[in-house]
Structure formats: C-alpha cells, structure tokens
Design a binder for these strands. Sequence first.
DNA 1: CCTACCGATCGGTAGG
DNA 2: CCTACCGATCGGTAGG
Lengths: 188, 188
Amino acid sequence: MYTKTDIVNIAGKLFSERGYHGTSMRDLAKVLAVRGATLYSHVESKEEMLWEIVNRAADEFLAAAAAVPQDSSPEERLRLLVHGHLDVIARELPYATVFFHEWQFLEPSLREQIKERRDAYEQHFRRVIEDGIEQGCFQAEDARVATLFVLSALNWTYQWFRPDGSLTIEQLAEQYNALIQRSLKADI
Amino acid sequence: MYTKTDIVNIAGKLFSERGYHGTSMRDLAKVLAVRGATLYSHVESKEEMLWEIVNRAADEFLAAAAAVPQDSSPEERLRLLVHGHLDVIARELPYATVFFHEWQFLEPSLREQIKERRDAYEQHFRRVIEDGIEQGCFQAEDARVATLFVLSALNWTYQWFRPDGSLTIEQLAEQYNALIQRSLKADI
DNA sequence: CCTACCGATCGGTAGG
DNA sequence: CCTACCGATCGGTAGG
C-alpha cells in the first residue's frame, strides 16, 4: 500500500510538528491507517526514518550550494546561496525543520556524519565571504562571525516562514539579500 | 535537600541537552540522586517545570527590552536591544535553549501565554525599526521582514555560541551590532 | 498487511 | 525523603 518514501514523508511531517521523541511509531501508524508492527516491514527502526529525513535535507542544502557557479562575483555567489537556502526551506519545510531541530537525537556516528555535511555547507558561505573581503567588495571584523550571522538569519526562517502566507519565497529572498548584502558591503 | 529552584535548574539543563520528551523524570531524579517519586513533593508535574523554565526565559528577555531607554535614538535603542538579547542567551543558555526549542510542548493555554509574551518582545524590535525608518536613519523594504531578519540572526545564536569559548559575549554583540546596523542604515 | 506479544519505561499516586 | 505500585505506552519481534 505504502512505499518507504510515503512513510518517511509522513514521519517528516509528524516529527516536525511533535518532535522525534514526541512522536510514537503508533502515532505514525495511525496516520497511515495500519498497525504499528506493519511499519517495520518498511523501515528498520524509528531512528532510520530520522536519518533518512535529516540526511535528505542535508542533500538538498548541499545540492543548492553546489549549483552556484564558482566564477561569479562574491556578491552574486552570496545572492545565489541565500536564495538557494531559503528555497530549500520553503520547498522542504518539514524536512528542514527536523534537520535543524532533531538531528541531535541521532546516534553518535550518524550525528557525526551530519555535522560534517553541515560544516561543509557552512564552508560555502565562509569562502564567499572571505573571497569578498579579499577582493574588497565585502567587509567584516571577523569572517567567522559574519558567516554565522548570515546563516543564523537564514536558518531561523523555518520557525516563521509559511509557504502559504502572503510573503512569497521570492520576496523573502530578495529582502533578505538586500539586508545581508548591505550588512557586508564594504564602505565606498 | 533540594529546593524547587535547584530542580528546575537541573531540568533546564537536561531539557536543553536531550529535549523535553527525551528527558524522563527518572533521568532528572538520577542527577539529583533521589527516587523519581520524590520529585513530586517539589513539583506538580513535568510540564510545570517546562513552564517555569520557558516563562523565566521570557521574563529575562522582556526585562532586558524594558530596560532600554525610550528617549534614545533608534540606533542606540537597537544597539541596546541586540546587546540585551545576546546577553540573556549567554547568561541563561540552557533556559534560552528550552525557550526556543520546547515551548511548543506546553498545553495550549500556556503556549498561548508564551506566544503573547514573545509577540510583545518582538514589538520592541519592530517599533525601533519603524521609528528609525520614519526618522530617516534606517531603511527597509518591509519593517516586518527586517524585524524578523534581526531576530532570526539573534535567536539562532543559542545554537552555536558557547559562553566558555574564545569569543566573548561583548565581542559577539559588538560585531552583531556592526552587521545589523549596516543592514538597516539609510543610504547617505 | 495482520494478531499477539515482549521487556522496559513512561508520568504519576498512595501511603508512610 | 522512601518503597511499592498504577495503567498506559514505548520501540520492536515472532510468526503467519
């Protein structure tokens, strides 16, 4: 009746609403209108679902960053990174929410893999900011803090952005870009 | 042996590390070296502890905002709001973490009270940004998005700022202020 | 996909 | 502060 993908999608929705530990396998089974035991013919464990969700969100973020052409200017690359980040959050809001909120409940070895992917993602932002400072189009006292500032402003949007609201993702990205670019723009 | 405050403080630490649903009353009792049942002579329920933690964090944020003199310039008021916010996060990192992460697990009537306090807090930021735009020292396409941008950048710091790290809260506040003020500064 | 069931643990109470 | 215990529910398995 259901594929593993269906089950993981529903799990993503429930985990994002109630948290990983606040969602039971029977809660999930009820939504799918099957018995709890049936889930185990599709997935190995509850944690496997969390892993699939979190890892797929990481895939999406990294794919968006990888699509940014490296030969563009720092301003343009940052603009695309910001747009791509917000676009992933808007398209995959439940997955992104679980990614930000629940990844810590993975067992240590899986958690470590997510940390590495998250660090790799942050490096895309760090590099573009450092390149901009070097080339004189950006300024910042500390590139690390500036990177965390930008990513903080972006990450938290999963808490308040609603894809069905009156603010479109394009409008949000445009305004966020105006604010971020100004915060980093070199004087003169 | 233990006061209610002691118990709630430990609960704040555990909830911030493992989540509300990921922490059992027996986990908490073990840290305090008592039996699980003993906790109930100090607190009414697990949820009461969550409420105490979340509500106290709200107290701290609102108190910091209320301490900002209303007759200062928008730039100065925003500077103080940013500093105050980061200061609360640094001083009360476990409480702030639970506030941001676990408030949704309160029952509806308590959750509603937190929402109202959070909205009142956001209004402090919204007003100062609108005042700045009106007076011509700030610019933003949409004051609401600008407010959420600033608060997003601030809120997420609980995820990465460590009070025992090499970056002090004063350094962080100063750099955040430089970035935020530039993001809003009117041209010319 | 089901029924039936496992041991462990959950938040919480009774009674001292 | 304790022992003893409650019913409910947890993630997961056996076997079909």
